[in-house]
Design a binder for these strands. Structure first.
Lengths: 252, 252
DNA sequence: AGCGTGTTTCCCACATTGTGGGAACCTGGG
DNA sequence: CCCAGGTTCCCACAATGTGGGAAACACGCT
């Protein structure tokens, strides 16, 4: 036995439903399965939240679970594919680890990192989430949010991670302005002692922020003071290139 | 038998993966299933595209199929649930059909309509898509896009639907400005002769446009000249209420 | 009301299908 | 080269999912 029939069938049904909501009998006809089987499969799918009953009684449609499942990785998906080559390129330029992250609620989620050759380097944060105000990758994203959203963010208690973490709302606000005008931002030992990073925002199809790209390294060598601006510009340039690559190709 | 075990397990695994990509053994540990079973389930899920292998060999993550499945219904989903009551309310106020639409590439897609009591009324456009520049529902959305995106839109050939359709890029631009400052826009027989409509944009969690709400009626009676501004304000108010309802509640 | 069509839900015997133990097989490190 | 950690394959077993059909609903018609 290689594949699981019931799962394949279930996804067949999901695809039908994605095209157009429908009831048991109709799906049974379309997918050429006995109604009782379809009923059972749909029942299970409903149980896990993959589909839900349409309000006025008859029929099912794609449900919240699927949305959650996909959204949790979705943005990174296309992002990763597109960004990968640019990340590698950027690593060569700045000679430090480069990462990509996406917004996830009030956090940013690190989805990928390309390491540099240095024997001493920042560990791979892929898979972790951190509050936006403590990391460059988060600040540049936050900076792109509409005013009310920022308001909400800053209205909550802002956690401190190190002595250098900036948590005064007005101070954070100033940094956001800075990020907007510069197109990038530096954080220095605000999340963890010994790590500095620069980040620039990534924009997707509609012009909305979909995440950010950053370079980070040990604070004893990064950034080299002379290179500070150059590095930032390189990150910004990579970000722009990725955004351009994402830019078009909208879909419903 | 009530539910299908393999499907439940499969979705359990998907949820694990959504949280964080992982390999077979790790998932087996976490979900407390035999590795061979996990391997088989993942194999099937990969077959249907629900997950995919992570580039550098080891591990799986959520795949394209799930994204497709959810995106096909997602935007309308939460929107519809939230918007429904407001739509009904608005119908009462303006005494004409009210609809909701979402952006889909360069088109807007009509996802729902609540009809009014009039024996003569606009047909239900639910399910159809139209270019943004010819309908109020599209213009208000377009108006919220970032400049470069608008640029791209207007750079293409703009189709004419009726003699009154505005297709000169500069003219459209002026209307977009108007839409931004007023918060709504009227279109009069630009898409189909005999139909006028007003629309206002809907904003979602991040403050991004997620669609629009509009009222439309036969041009011989809609809008009543004296009511023109009142109606527009009512649409705007409904839009604001819906946006507020969508507004918060972010999630990863 | 009463009927009829088109649903969905429930039940149950059957064997197909999925299961899981374990062995073989890769792969990367030391 | 060997060892650990992971993945793929195999196979006997029966638990699991299957599907036919009947029962319970839900409407729309007359």
């Amino acid at each position: 036995m290689r594949t699981v029939q019931s799962i394949e069938r279930a996804f067949g049904l999901l695809e039908e439903l994605a095209g157009e909501p429908a009831g048991i009998t109709e799906l049974a006809r379309r997918s050429d399965l006995p109604t009782s089987t379809v009923a059972r499969l749909l029942g299970t799918l409903e149980g896990v939240g993959a589909i839900e009953r349409i309000a006025d009684g008859t029929g099912y449609r794609i449900g919240p679970t699927l949305v959650t499942l996909s959204s949790s990785v979705d943005p990174s998906q296309s992002l990763l594919a597109v960004a990968q080559p640019f990340m590698v390129e950027l690593v060569d330029l700045v000679a430090e680890a480069v990462g990509i992250s996406i917004p996830a609620g009030y956090d940013v989620h690190y989805v990928e990192q390309v390491d540099c050759a240095h024997p001493v380097q920042v560990r791979d944060w892929t898979g972790t989430s951190l509050p936006m105000h403590i990391v460059s990758a988060g600040l540049v994203v936050l900076a792109q949010w509409p005013e009310e959203a920022i308001e909400r963010y800053l209205g909550r208690r802002l956690e401190r991670y190190t002595p250098d973490t900036v948590i005064r709302p007005e101070a954070v606000r100033r940094r956001l302005e800075q990020a907007r005008s510069d197109g990038y931002i530096w954080t220095e030992e605000e999340f963890a002692e010994g790590i500095n990073s620069v980040a620039a925002p990534l924009f997707g199809s509609g012009g909305v922020v979909v995440g950010s790209i950053h370079a980070h390294g040990p604070s004893y060598r990064f950034p080299d003071d002379a290179m500070r601006d150059v590095i930032a510009e390189q990150v910004v340039a990579s970000a722009a290139a990725i955004s351009a690559a994402l830019g078009h190709g909208q879909e419903a």
